[in-house]
Design a protein around this nucleic acid. Structure first.
Length: 286
DNA sequence: GCGATCCTGGCC
DNA sequence: GGCCAGGATCGC
């Protein structure tokens, strides 16, 4: 479900956790841990302060306060949610029975002030993991990730070079490929290709540098727009405080074929590429 | 490149 | 009951 703009919105909505004193984490029997044992995961989280909330692509990282670099790595997959449950001030000093957490809660981070951060994921396509190096790239989930689309260090020239390594990829697959650059998912890939006026079926080798540069700029634009509108809530995306996104009201092509509310909906096609839906407007995208 | 796979839930 | 879903990986 969540792509870069949704994860960034969640990150910002959880800013109150910066500096928060974590006590422990509770894992469900089916918690989707990757490359970390339950014991390791619990041990790293025990009695740690959160120093910062970081993001690379669709990954949220909890940077912990410790002498050596330590991070909790969170990926929400298709259906994952993070939700902060705070204790009302009036109840701070009178122990209350906690409200029950939502179904499919697979991890609960508890804090010294009684707040709880729930990781909820019905489908369990998400992942929880750990890293112990400065850049976090010791973790296999992050090792092959390209630079974040909104990383100011990522130049157009470098993006073009990364694209050229995969000449046979079609542009939709290129956009979704997190090795090239990280952050686009199905919604924003469709939107970016629309803004770039490029046909998603074209291959990299058929594109000029100018066209690929257009895709780069369009991807950054689509993602920035998504962040500005607090992400896209189609069904189950909500930020860390439970707020809905608003970007669904501003999408140009994703899900818009035969949608009477969208302008040009009659020219928007839906096709399948690599098993996933692509929406595009062939009268504009060439 | 594609399809299958991992899962649950919502909708028709 | 079948189809679809904001992801990612694996094996032809």
């Amino acid at each position: 479900m969540p792509e870069l703009p949704e994860i960034e919105t969640i990150r910002r909505s959880l800013d109150a956790l910066r500096g928060a004193q974590m006590c422990a984490v509770t894992l469900s029997q089916l918690a989707p841990l990757a490359h970390a044992s339950r014991a390791d995961f619990r041990a790293m989280c025990r009695d740690k302060k959160i120093r910062a909330l970081e993001r690379i692509g669709k990954y949220l990282l909890l940077r912990l306060d410790s002498t050596t670099p330590q991070r909790v790595i969170i990926h929400l997959g298709m259906s994952g949610q993070l939700r902060l449950f705070t204790v009302p001030t009036s109840e701070k000093f009178s122990p209350q029975s906690h409200a029950p957490l939502p179904p499919h809660t697979h991890a609960v981070f508890t804090f010294a002030n009684g707040d709880r951060l729930a990781y909820i994921d019905a489908r369990r396509f998400g992942r929880l993991s750990l890293s112990r190096t400065d850049d976090g790239r010791d973790n296999p989930l992050l090792a092959a990730l390209g630079p974040d689309y909104l990383d100011p260090q990522l130049s157009e020239k470098s993006f073009l070079a990364r694209c050229r390594r995969h000449p046979k990829l079609n542009l939709k697959a290129l956009a979704l490929d997190q090795r090239i650059a990280a952050g686009l998912g199905n919604i924003y890939a469709c939107e970016a290709l629309y803004h770039a006026r490029l046909d998603p079926r074209r291959a990299v080798y058929q594109c000029s540098d100018t066209e690929l540069a257009r895709l780069f700029a369009a991807a950054q634009h689509a993602l920035a727009l998504g962040i500005a509108h607090g992400g896209t809530t189609l069904r189950d995306y909500f930020d860390g405080q439970g707020a809905r996104g608003r970007m669904q009201d501003f999408l140009c092509v994703y899900g818009k074929a035969h949608d009477a509310t969208a302008k040009n909906s009659h020219t928007i096609l839906r096709i399948t590429q690599a098993g996933r839906s692509t929406w595009f407007d062939p009268t504009v995208q060439r």
